[in-house]
């Protein structure tokens, strides 16, 4: 009975092989051949990177770089519009369930623009948007905790607003964002499972296909899928908690953690 366990895990890690006839020569073959857990990790990474970039951009837009004296009303209006757009994007994506976000990104582009984008790009876009909102919120609260004397010092030294933002505030904020980033990474990793709904061959979809092909034995495949999500997520979170604890231990936290019985 234990003979079939390794093949299950192997397939889950790599996904189902794509038949050569179905490979689209117009974009990277490597990505098309990846499936299973590898694809999950790749999408998580892509989402994190693009989300980080987009999140910082959203934050910058929200802080409205076009305000201040010496700007003509047209520019000020543009600044407000950009800020409004950034807020709309953030609140909009926050208010939607991830499955809905995935469905929207996967089904809307073609009818509206006629463009058929490859699945991987759509997945990266969807999760980039998802992650961007987390990054923007985390950065915004981190920004609020920056000592206001530092950007003030920058202004005294003659730096422009943009320079202060990029060189003083952002580096400080990145440090405070670290635990949130780890949380976001774990969330992305787990929520990438929703791509199974749109038939992207990542870990969950692979497991589901295996299960449907032979329910009797491959029911265990889904159990393996669960473990393959749970173990990395827990391990990663534990690392983050420990790092956080090391940082706050210096503050001398003495907390009672049992109740009166």
């Amino acid at each position: 009975m234990s003979g079939w366990i390794p093949p299950i895990v192997r397939t889950l890690l790599a996904g189902y092989p794509v038949p050569p006839s179905m490979i689209d020569p117009s974009y990277p073959q490597l990505i098309q051949r990846i499936g299973g857990l590898e694809l999950t990790l790749l999408i998580t990474l892509a989402g994190l990177l693009s989300g980080f970039a987009l999140g910082v951009i959203l934050l910058a837009c929200r802080r409205n770089p076009l305000t201040g004296p010496g700007r003509d009303p047209g520019e000020q209006l543009l600044g407000q519009a950009v800020r409004g757009a950034a807020i709309a994007v953030v609140e909009g994506v926050r208010g939607l369930p991830i499955i809905l976000l995935v469905l929207l990104v996967f089904t809307l582009p073609y009818p509206i623009t006629g463009l058929q984008l490859p699945n991987f790009v759509l997945a990266a876009a969807a999760f980039g948007l998802y992650a961007a909102v987390f990054v923007e919120e985390s950065a915004r609260s981190g920004l609020r905790s920056v000592d206001p004397q530092l950007p003030a010092a920058g202004r005294v030294l003659g730096l422009t607003g943009r320079q202060i933002f990029l060189r003083i505030e952002l580096p400080l904020v990145f440090r405070t964002m670290r635990p949130d980033l780890i949380n976001t990474a774990v969330t992305l990793f787990k929520d990438s499972s929703t791509l199974a709904v749109v038939a992207v061959p990542e870990l969950t979809y692979t497991g589901r296909q295996m299960m449907l092909s032979d329910p009797a034995i491959y029911g265990a495949a889904l159990l393996a899928v669960l473990i393959l999500y749970w173990a990395p997520a827990t391990a990663f979170s534990a690392v983050a908690v420990r790092a956080e604890r090391r940082r706050t231990r210096a503050e001398g936290f003495a907390v009672r953690n049992t109740m009166i019985e």
């Binding site: 787990k190 889904l222 827990t234």
Partner: peptide
């Protein structure tokens, strides 16, 4: 808490509604 905080819902639901009954039967 440790288990359910880190389990994604989609595979969990698939497992509970499809695989679990059949595993149980087996």
């Amino acid at each position: 808490v440790m288990i359910f905080r880190n389990l994604p819902l989609v595979p969990l639901l698939l497992f509970v509604t499809f695989a679990l009954p059949r595993l149980w039967l087996q």
